[in-house]
Design a binder for these strands. Structure first.
Length: 271
DNA sequence: ATGGTTGGGGGCCAA
């Protein structure tokens, strides 16, 4: 473990698929990688049952939690101060799918969990898919209005590029890689000129995944992955990007999440 | 074409 300058931050996004079921894995991850900020999705716990003191004991005493019973839920826990914590009700569904907080230096950090969209990629017959497309449309409009330096992370449940899935052709009609979804991702990216941080470090020619289904016997051998998790930054932050890693070892830990943590090191503006 | 697995919450649904 090496020390980093004070303006260098390590930010991680990880869909943990239930934070309470995954505390041992989170513990191991925090010890091995020492993120400054950990953005979790699918915490699957209501806000007042989030394990706040557990994270405080490990140094993550700044917390922005937006949870609900059963499903969804996001939480950002940090060793750096978080101010102006807020969340927005996307699509007026009352779902806990977003939480925002301001980092030292003034950058806003947005943590998202976009609807998965169900199985059938048809908005007329599948209300879950319609909800997903509407949610992405709201994010496009939001990105267009965004003026301040921002970091957006989370499980966006879309693999936008051809090499973000194990087979572009075979997944064109599979929810997460259909044209209505991937076109919206590109429209969203263009609306703020977002920098796709993972692809800043790994060429679009190279396969790059962050999720592997539970339903494959040997996920690493078959490697039928998808890049559903993302880190995007405002153009002004691009020069500060230092490193990125999909920590897929965590996918092989005991009782894993089906998503791997995405680790990004970057220099934040000095406040 | 199908089934494969997981977590939450209570006896299936969402992913």
């Amino acid at each position: 473990m090496s020390s980093r300058p004070s303006d260098r931050a390590r930010i991680v996004t990880w869909n943990v698929n239930s934070v309470r079921a995954r505390l041992d894995l989170v513990d191991r991850f925090l010890l091995e990688h020492r993120p400054d900020v950990l953005c979790l999705q699918e915490i699957k716990v209501q806000t007042d049952l989030f394990p706040r003191s557990w994270f405080e004991e490990r140094g993550y005493r700044h917390q922005a939690v937006h949870g609900q019973r059963n499903h969804h839920g996001v939480a950002t826990v940090s060793r750096l101060p978080l101010t102006e914590v807020s969340s927005r009700d996307w699509c007026e569904k009352g779902d806990a799918r977003h939480v925002a907080a301001r980092l030292p230096g003034g950058v806003m950090l947005h943590n998202f969990y976009v609807p998965a969209g169900g199985d059938e990629p048809d908005r007329d017959s599948n209300p879950r898919f319609a909800h997903k497309l509407d949610f992405l449309d709201e994010m496009i409009a939001w990105s267009r209005e965004l003026s301040e330096p921002s970091i957006m992370v989370g499980d966006l449940n879309v693999a936008p590029l051809e090499r973000d899935v194990w087979s572009h052709r075979q997944l064109l009609k599979v929810v997460s890689h259909t044209p209505p979804e991937t076109e919206r991702m590109e429209a969203m990216r263009a609306a703020h000129d977002w920098v796709d941080v993972m692809r800043h470090f790994v060429s679009a020619d190279e396969p790059l995944y962050s999720w592997w289904s539970y339903r494959s016997k040997d996920w690493r051998k078959s490697n039928r992955g998808r890049r559903l998790d993302h880190v995007w930054v405002s153009p002004v932050l691009q020069g500060g990007l230092k490193a990125m890693q999909v920590f897929d070892d965590a996918r092989s830990w005991e009782r894993p999440s089906d998503h791997a943590p995405v680790i990004v090191d970057l220099d934040l503006p000095v406040g």
